[in-house]
Amino acid sequence: MKNKQLCVKQKVVKIHAYKDFNLLTKKILQSCWQGLINFLIPSEEPQVRQRVTRQGDIYWEVYDPATGKYFTSGSEIEMRIWIEQLYR
């Protein structure tokens, strides 16, 4: 019985590792693709990204290529206000 439980646990661990690897690979490819697009088609519009910390907290990063300014906030409202103030 212990052998079967160990075998099942090992398979579950392998499946989770495989899913994590696929997720990581997908994120890396998305990031590379977005970087290539940004390089080939530069934009003067603010670039907004929603990020997640290792603890699972969501925060916002904004970059304005026209001014070279960066802004980071844990609040979507603060991020929107910062963008609006750029264009007043």
Rank of each mutant, 00 (worst) to 15 (best):
Lys2Pro: 02
Asn3Tyr: 10
Lys4Tyr: 13
Lys4Trp: 11
Gln5Ile: 06
Cys7Asp: 15
Val8Ser: 13
Val8Pro: 01
Gln10Ile: 02
Lys11His: 07
Val12Asn: 11
His16Ile: 03
Ala17Tyr: 02
Lys19Ile: 06
Asp20Leu: 12
Asp20Gln: 14
Asn22Gly: 07
Thr25Asp: 14
Thr25Ile: 01
Lys26Trp: 10
Lys26Ser: 12
Lys27Glu: 14
Lys27Asp: 06
Ile28Glu: 14
Ile28Met: 08
Ile28Asn: 09
Leu29Pro: 00
Ser31Glu: 15
Cys32Gln: 14
Cys32Ile: 04
Cys32Val: 02
Cys32Thr: 02
Trp33Ser: 13
Gly35Ile: 01
Gly35Ser: 15
Ile37Ala: 07
Asn38Glu: 13
Phe39Asn: 06
Phe39Met: 07
Pro42Cys: 11
Pro42Arg: 13
Ser43Gly: 06
Ser43His: 08
Ser43Trp: 09
Glu44Asn: 15
Glu44Tyr: 10
Glu45Ala: 09
Pro46Gln: 09
Pro46Glu: 10
Pro46Trp: 09
Val48Cys: 10
Arg49Asp: 03
Arg49Ser: 12
Val52Thr: 15
Val52Ile: 15
Thr53Tyr: 11
Arg54Ser: 10
Gln55Lys: 15
Gln55Asn: 13
Asp57Arg: 14
Ile58Leu: 13
Tyr59Trp: 15
Trp60Asn: 01
Glu61Gly: 00
Glu61Gln: 12
Glu61Arg: 03
Val62Lys: 02
Tyr63Thr: 01
Tyr63Leu: 05
Asp64Trp: 07
Asp64Leu: 03
Asp64Ala: 05
Ala66Gln: 12
Ala66Ile: 01
Thr67Gln: 08
Gly68Glu: 08
Lys69Asp: 14
Lys69Val: 03
Lys69Thr: 03
Lys69Tyr: 14
Lys69Ile: 02
Lys69His: 13
Tyr70Ser: 08
Tyr70Arg: 12
Tyr70Glu: 11
Thr72Ile: 11
Ser73Asn: 07
Gly74Ile: 02
Ser75Phe: 05
Glu76Ile: 01
Ile77Val: 10
Glu78Tyr: 05
Glu78Ala: 11
Arg80Pro: 00
Arg80Glu: 10
Arg80Val: 00
Ile81Ser: 06
Trp82Ala: 03
Trp82Leu: 04
Trp82His: 05
Glu84Val: 01
Glu84Phe: 05
Gln85Arg: 15
Gln85Val: 01
Leu86Arg: 15
Leu86Lys: 14
Leu86Phe: 09
Tyr87Thr: 07
Arg88Tyr: 07
Arg88Pro: 02
Arg88Gln: 13
